[in-house]
Amino acid sequence: MMTGWWLRRKRNRIKEAEAGRLDCAGIMERLYEYIDEELDDPRLVSAIRDHLEKCKVCFPQYEFEKAFLRFLAQRGANGAPPRLRRRIFQRLLEEESQS
């Protein structure tokens, strides 16, 4: 228990320090987590948002990464073929009539 609490406190301190002095390298390290909305510290989120708004180096890369992820979401999907759907419904009917 003690260890968990101590680790959490230590981690929080690191987060605070991080939010205080985020340079471009630090932003790049957390960029995906920021885009994915997976950062749980609101101070870190707003620090990154502020940096991105002002930084001419990071902002274009942020936009680029977002475009890439949008592209993946649109083009990476393959729906189940109707043939498979029929096959599965058929198989489930058989399964039901047994048992």
Partner: peptide, 27 residues
Amino acid sequence: LDTLYNVALRLTGNAADAEDLVQETVL
């Protein structure tokens, strides 16, 4: 089902195996 098929396709690398894997999973 769409999610299952998509993940199966990426794991197996071909449609026939992906369909078998999805059917097995659903059962």
